[in-house]
Design a protein around this nucleic acid. Structure first.
Length: 213
DNA sequence: CGCCAGGGCCATA
DNA sequence: TATGGCCATGGC
């Protein structure tokens, strides 16, 4: 018996096809991007990423002052805060000599706790980093996923981790599946399931009660 | 003009 | 545990 979540995944995958996330040239760029996109649309975050391109190296970014970094990432919003968060992340990253392969060897939940202890990295950013930066299978229980499932009539746990574990309980512990799942949910939310939904042409309309938040 | 976007921290009760 | 204020740009 397949769970609702697996059926949702299949419908999204059949409609949108493989997404092959995260959009970034390097793993380090992906990790920085996950901070820049916090509560910001990808367009603005990506503008900041392009300005950061010439410095896209942990040592180079760390040499910038917080003020210089903040101005470079201005377009992503919350730039003073995000500059500090990027600095804090690089400070942690330095402990592992900027060696992503070494970090990948750390136990999934131990690594998650380490990321959560970095100021500015909360549950969602940590899970995105784990999934797309460090190859750890995990469900990103973000607002898009919550909104989509809610509108489809599913009952979900209120807390972030409750929701995340609820999905993981009924979903294969598979890196590629979780990679695609989050990307597909984001793509679907962008096109049809924002605060103002577009239900007329939505590919999931037949399986959705179209209730609002 | 107001609303929203791939959050998280902190103070408060 | 659960709200509320705060951070801030740019597209529509």
């Amino acid at each position: 018996m397949q769970s609702n979540y697996q059926l949702t995944y299949d419908m999204l995958f059949n409609h949108y096809g493989p997404q092959n996330w995260w959009p970034a040239d390097t793993h380090f760029e992906m990790l920085i991007g996950s901070i820049l996109v916090q509560n910001t649309n990808w367009r603005n975050a990506n503008k900041a990423l392009q300005k950061l391109k010439p410095y896209m190296d942990p040592e180079l970014i760390d040499q910038l002052s917080a003020e210089e970094l903040a101005q470079l990432i201005r377009s992503s919003g919350f730039f003073n805060i995000k500059a500090k968060r990027i600095k804090a992340f690089i400070g942690w990253f330095k402990n592992y000599h900027y060696d992503i392969d070494k970090i990948k060897k750390i136990d999934r939940w131990e690594l998650r706790n380490e990321l959560l202890n970095i100021n500015g990295i909360g549950r969602e950013t940590a899970d995105v980093m784990l999934l797309y930066g460090f190859d750890k299978p995990i469900f990103v229980a973000d607002a898009y996923a919550r909104r989509i499932f809610y509108r489809m009539g599913y009952d979900m746990q209120t807390s972030y981790d409750g929701f995340r574990q609820q999905i993981e309980k009924d979903f294969p512990d598979d890196l590629q599946l979780y990679n695609e799942f989050h990307a597909l949910l984001v793509e679907h939310a962008k096109q049809f399931c924002r605060v103002k939904p577009i239900c007329e042409t939505c590919p999931l309309a037949n399986n959705c009660d179209q209730r609002l938040d």
